[in-house]
Design a protein around this nucleic acid. Sequence first.
DNA 1: CTATATTAAGACTAAAATATCTGAATATTA
DNA 2: TAATATTCAGATATTTTAGTCTTAATATAG
Lengths: 144, 144
Amino acid sequence: MSLIFSRQCEYALQAVLYLALKPLDDMTSIKELTKRLDIPYHFLAKILQDLTRKGLLSSLKGPTGGFGLGMPAKDITLFHIVEAIDGVEFMHNCVMGFPECSGKNPCAVHEKWANLRDGVYTMLVSKNIAEMAKNMRKPEYQSV
Amino acid sequence: MSLIFSRQCEYALQAVLYLALKPLDDMTSIKELTKRLDIPYHFLAKILQDLTRKGLLSSLKGPTGGFGLGMPAKDITLFHIVEAIDGVEFMHNCVMGFPECSGKNPCAVHEKWANLRDGVYTMLVSKNIAEMAKNMRKPEYQSV
DNA sequence: CTATATTAAGACTAAAATATCTGAATATTA
DNA sequence: TAATATTCAGATATTTTAGTCTTAATATAG
Ligand code: FES
Ligand code: FES
């Protein structure tokens, strides 16, 4: 199977975009998130804790507690999330798996891949998550 | 960790490109391939057997045996290899992991991803593996 | 203060991907 | 025919990723 981002990372992207639709200090429980997004409860819990440790989210215990953005949505891009979960190695790895990726010793598709990779980067940083979230037409995100 | 193709698939791409540099009926042993490409012996064996069953390669037992292309290099693209190993789901999956990927209910990056995905497809089919192999400047492939 | 709802943390389990091992089948060569 | 070099097939092992469970900590509301 091929995939770009790990499952964890996909869940993180989905969850943070959901939080981006809410006011900064509004806390959202894991329960609400898993219900909306159909993500395993405890798995999502770990991911969110991870993002909290890394400062992207903030959390609060107790009733009325939950998770919220750790900084204004306008300062967060999808790239921050990918970076926090999967890391950025994909930005400098050879798509064919060769140990080196550079124009010096290019593999058969290096030029094209380098372009596409830049495109992925642009895709992840071109808008902040507030704008991103608004661009979605996913039922999971309606009437938050 | 993020990656596009599975490790298996990466190995397959590397190995088939190596075979593409040889005459059609010239058999190459796993030993030679693993030595050149630094791929675990038995793992590569399984991958090549898989590709053989699927017709992309041919094999011959015994001394002077080994693996070769199953059809002329000009008829094979990288996409055929990816298709055989990883499958083509990545061509219609949402990059953020949502259950549906379509313009009807687009995720935040659907348009951009759809373009990039087409770019990946083009990258994989734009040349046959004979041309691809010649474009490589990897030391692993010199003086075959 | 107490009961409750929540996150935090870490151990644990399950599944998938990656890698290794072993013996059989087969073709070549001497 | 015998020895050898190879692929073939399937079992096993290891590592990584995904997912679950349990207990503790903490904040709120009554
Ligand atoms: S060398 Fe292969 S993508 Fe750069
Ligand atoms: S819906 Fe996400 S990439 Fe198409």
